[in-house]
Design a protein around this nucleic acid. Structure first.
Lengths: 248, 248
DNA sequence: CACGCAGAGAATGTATCCAAAATATGCGGT
DNA sequence: ACCGCATATTTTGGATACATTCTCTGCGTG
């Protein structure tokens, strides 16, 4: 019972929600070694809360497939597998491809322009050898798209967000190589073209191809990045930070 | 505290799991009027459990979008909307279309034969004017397909199952009209043909069209089927029954 | 030496308890 | 008579306590 009973939640979120998000983030970041038992009480102690929010979080995460029951007792983070990674990318490709095809019917010229500006800035980043600028604008490109999709199709939007989250577990949070950066920009250009042509089928095809490329650029990380870090203590303040945005 | 403290779970499932499933089933069946406050203690009393499993169930259901927070206090089942129904069908069409396209690369002649037998039996049902026979075999047709998909793609399979569940809320659990039955069988024939041709693109197209038809056949129910039933008492035994299988 | 059973310990499942927050209610003032 | 503030009630949030079950270990026996 590290935390006092009476506490105005650090900001505005319930302890339950904070616990859920933090645990999810930690899992996605690979802070828990796969197959290792996640003991409610230890986690509770680690987070400075009681077992109750931890349990609720674990059960919600089970629903999402981020933890699974270990035998009859307790939970653990499942092993990373190439099959699961591949499946997640596949699903994501399908969903985002469809989302783009929906978007192309309704997108405004204004939005197209903003997207193309993102691409231009990213290209400038390549020329000036600033990979972080590329990364930043690639992210903005996608955020813009999903923002537009989310307006009319909240369910689809949520599903896509979930998939992007789950993939984080398999993916380093960087743009990777210079070559990948250029390939990504080229993909974005094709996406913009398909959007501008208002061709739904082309949109699907182009987006799927783009995500397949992303998958290929990610594949290598699986064997390299082992997950264990000593899961040391962390302060409550960190809980406020959201999961880092996805990136290509 | 209706239930005694010591109880071997009616069968093998935890009370938590039973509560979650039963609540979900009741929501999908429309037993709770939309926008009506779901009070934890009332539900707990209704189910003969304590508040704890009810709370966990409600929060899991929130994650799935089956309940939402009512203001700052408590949950309610969200209103049915044509937009949501449409979106659910769309997502389902996309996912199942993709699943079928995956399946067509690996399906065995044996499985194709079994599928075609389902169709044959359903057609016999039409000729003999036995709609339940049609219904039964249509269901088996789909179950067979998803069983095959689930083997290699558990995530995709779960997603599809979820979508089918969510759609139950909008759909009467019958085959509807005679005309719809015939149309459904025709759709299945096309699906089988696409599978047999091992044409992924055709598979996607055909499955999407099939589900669109299902959506069209469902659309009318929205305004007609009001959800309220007096949510009367139910015995524990009912909890063991799974959500009714989907149907076309 | 190995296998199995029994008991102890540890971790989860469930219920209850206490506190906080919001809404409803009632009283008083203008 | 109406509006506003204060209080009471209801309901959720979070923690703890208790019962249950699973596992691990150690001892005894074959």
């Amino acid at each position: 019972m590290a935390a006092p009973t009476t506490r105005k939640n650090t900001g505005r979120l319930s302890v339950r929600e904070q616990t859920y998000r933090l645990l999810k983030k930690k899992i996605l970041n690979g802070h828990f070694p796969p197959e290792e038992r996640l003991v409610e009480e230890s986690l509770a102690g680690l987070l400075g809360v009681s077992r109750t929010p931890v349990r609720e979080a674990l059960h919600k995460l089970e629903l999402e497939g981020l933890v699974r029951q270990k035998g009859a007792r307790g939970f653990c983070v499942p092993e990373k597998t190439a099959e699961e990674m591949s499946e997640l990318f596949e699903i994501r490709a399908v969903l985002e491809g469809y989302a783009l095809s929906c978007l192309c019917r309704t997108i405004s010229g204004d939005d197209v322009r903003r997207l193309s500006e993102c691409i231009a800035r990213a290209e400038r980043g390549v020329l000036e050898n600033k990979l972080d600028l590329v990364f930043e604008n690639n992210t903005e490109f996608h955020d813009l798209i999903y923002q537009l999709v989310g307006k009319k199709r909240p369910r689809l939007f949520n599903l896509i967000e979930d998939m992007r989250d789950y993939i984080l577990r398999y993916r380093k949070n960087t743009l990777g190589t210079f070559r990948a950066a250029k390939r990504s920009i080229l993909g974005h250009k094709k996406i913009l073209l398909a959007l501008d042509l208002k061709d739904p089928a082309l949109c699907e095809q182009v987006m799927r191809a783009h995500i397949s490329e992303a998958e290929a650029d990610t594949a290598c990380t699986l064997s390299a990045a082992s997950s264990a870090e000593p899961q040391q203590t962390y302060n409550r303040g960190e809980q406020r930070r959201a999961v880092l945005p996805p990136k290509w």
